[in-house]
Design a protein around this nucleic acid. Structure first.
Lengths: 127, 127
DNA sequence: CGGTATCCTCAAAGATACTG
DNA sequence: CAGTATCTTTGAGGATACCG
């Protein structure tokens, strides 16, 4: 969605954040990686509705922003793993806040997600 | 963006939240209303870079989603006020999380203003 | 003051096919 | 397995003008 730079675009931190999370997919991708979907094909399945080249593009953008790190293993078959960088981890509270909101509205996950994701827990800003 | 519905799109709450905050402007609009910019022209100024019909469109979408409430006062000159609904207030933690992240990355509130879009580079912000 | 009504552009999103 | 390469579509975002 364009988010082009404007000389005044750093007026508010919200805009800066929007810039990094720009688009339809990045938050949900980030969320899924944080849940352990750290490989391309895993993400392709986990992020329902996305396709290869869209996933590829989003991952690249996240990499470029310093949110993700990509590691290639020269094996046969080739293996690539994605990891959330320290900077990326600082973004998880935002993603988590989104998830909690969405879950609440849809009435999803009454049973609350199994606490596999340790570093997500720091997400409460204020109730 | 598009965020069209898919039968599986409610897989995760994150998606539901993205749907409501869809686009470039909604979080920053919401933030500004929460800060007291509750009128059209105020928002036009506060949300730098936006124009009339874009603001109008975004406000309508937020209204339709139940995030905002619009009140018209039949005066001369006409007055319209926007308020965040209870549902909308539950969204503020998300917006706030965004703002806090963005402020941190840009070093806002610390006089350190314009490294343009270079805030992406500083990967290590915390030890 | 607080909007609409048009029209246009360009990049995001998607479909399809191919590759190291 | 993990992508690229193209091409097409779609609609968000923007410019300009007008209105109750």
């Amino acid at each position: 969605m364009a988010l082009k730079e404007k000389t005044n675009s750093e007026t508010c931190g919200v805009t800066a954040c929007m810039k990094v999370l720009d688009g339809k997919w990045k938050p949900i991708i980030l969320f899924n990686i944080s849940k352990g979907a750290n490989r391309f094909t895993k993400l392709l399945v986990a992020v329902e509705g996305i396709n290869r080249q869209m996933l590829s593009k989003q991952l690249k953008q996240l990499e470029k922003s310093g949110i993700l790190e990509r590691t290639t293993f020269a094996e046969i078959p080739p293996r690539v793993e994605y990891a959330i960088t320290p900077l990326g981890k600082t973004l998880l509270p935002v993603v988590l806040a989104m998830k909690r909101w969405g879950d609440k509205q849809t009435g999803a996950n009454k049973v609350k997600t199994p606490p596999k994701d340790k570093f997500l827990q720091q997400a409460q800003l204020f109730d």
